[in-house]
Design a protein around this nucleic acid. Structure first.
Lengths: 271, 271
DNA sequence: CGCTGGGTTGATGGCGATCAATCAATGTGG
DNA sequence: CCACATTGATTGATCGCCATCAACCCAGCG
């Protein structure tokens, strides 16, 4: 499972977002990593902590989630191999969510200090890491739409669509099937449903011959119909915009110009 | 409503996230703005577009949302005055969501080029803008938890809690009440419920003497009980971490050290 | 004055929760 | 090798939250 250099999974994943140049790749390779294997259900990061390091998934799956006062749990994001899981901790005082291993999960931890040193030397790397946090946010908003306005079957289908596309881009699928170690209980916590209903909904998708799912192996039988059924649009998973020149090269100063409020068309400032 | 300089609302809001130095403030003041007033329900940004500018709210409220194939709508974020609404467009090829005015809303548009020029001159500004996108993501994930694992009454109460705290920090509340121009239909699209059920849930919160809500005016009657009822924890709205030194000052190079996978404790690399 | 958009209330029905039982697979200690 | 516990998938019965349909009211407004 880990016969490749761990950081290569990260490099390959970031490369899907935007072009990494040679320098950025070398800076990433030079990062000191602390590697650790987590068992299913184990906590990788705990809410309330204030870590001085971030981590990315080397192999397996991790999920981000929150626990409620009543003991309930909501998972709101899945991280696959290569994903930088909690880059957020760079920016947040107090981590507001838990990261949990789905199945066995291999994770690499990087100190903020070393990560920062690398970013300081490569504006391109900074840009792509920022971008990865923005794409995470876009995925979270799409998740909101699934929970709020889709029925259970379409939401589950949407989740499968997202996983397939993301894994495919990392070369982690065989044909249109992939391994996914989450239990039906995990799925329930992702979609805000009960275990029982996940089971029935899954049975429904099987009955419709949209997919097969057994022994942690998911096979999409009819991608077109599944995507149609889920009302799936992959644009929120897209690559980022290329880094603009101005991000690393300061430009000249522009004088301020302000135009006044208008309805429908713009006017000229009067104050 | 707009008797202050528009950019001051942004400067004040960004200042809540992290410390802006004099240079950053001046760069912001120098930004050329295109100001525009939008009527209730009007689209400020459309999904599918690929704008070369971003915008922030100067006065009023805007919401981010998605439309589904069946015509349904899900709103997944509310933006108040001072919020940088779609900084994301800096990073995304194709905007995957709409921005809609809730009530009359005054917005300032800034070109990516000018924004980039400002960021290129201030690492501190870049840091805080990155941070604001990260905080947006944290809010979206909290929203997921509301839709997935909270009942309608608690979710609605949570929304009110979030709005009160955010508006309070910007000085937009009077005592514990604030103006909110969204209709019950808008609320329904935020929480993934029907208009009718929003109406009943609102009545329930009134009956419990937790809040009053009439004529676009919301008054929290008992903050303690409301927050308890909503299981509200404001840490996801917090200020960001201060900018670390390394973000603007490149450090020396570190040699790579990799430690092998372990369960529970770390070992030394062997490959 | 009628029109329109939003708020409010009632009746009915369905999706999905909850409780409960069964079954298969795996692990564990004797 | 077997008794026993554990974990996860599956199915049935019942209940409740919330959607849907349908009125009706009210305020603002042309």
């Amino acid at each position: 499972m880990s016969n490749v250099v761990p950081v290569d999974t990260l490099i390959s994943a970031l490369g899907c977002i935007g072009l990494l140049d040679q320098q950025a790749v070398e800076l990433l390779r030079a990062l000191p990593l602390r590697l650790r294997r987590y068992d299913a259900g184990e906590h990788i990061v705990r809410a309330g902590s204030n870590p001085n390091e971030s981590c990315f998934v080397v192999a397996g799956f991790a999920a981000r989630g929150q626990y409620l006062a009543d003991g309930g749990r909501q998972l709101d994001q899945i991280h696959i191999s290569g994903d930088f899981v909690d880059l957020h901790s760079l920016h947040l005082h107090r981590i507001d969510h838990d990261i949990i291993a789905l199945g066995t999960c291999e994770v690499a931890h990087v100190s903020h200090e070393h990560l920062g040193s690398a970013m300081a030397q490569s504006g391109r790397l900074t840009w792509i890491l920022w971008q990865s946090t923005v794409l995470d946010g876009a995925a979270a908003r799409t998740w909101v739409t699934c929970l709020g306005r889709r029925r259970a079957d379409a939401a589950l289908a949407h989740l499968v669509c997202e996983l397939l596309i993301r894994l495919e881009r990392r070369g982690l699928t065989k044909k249109e099937s992939f391994r996914f170690p989450g239990t039906q209980g995990d799925l329930a916590d992702m979609l805000g449903l009960s275990v029982v209903h996940i089971n029935r909904t899954l049975a429904e998708l099987r009955r419709l011959r949209l997919l097969e799912w057994s022994h942690n192996e998911v096979r999409v039988l009819d991608w077109e119909r599944l995507a149609e059924f889920a009302d799936f649009d992959d644009s929120y998973l897209g690559a980022g915009r290329p880094m603009p020149r101005w991000f690393t090269k300061p430009a000249h100063h522009h004088p301020a110009t302000i135009r006044r409020f208008t309805n429908g068309r713009e006017g000229v400032a009067t104050d």
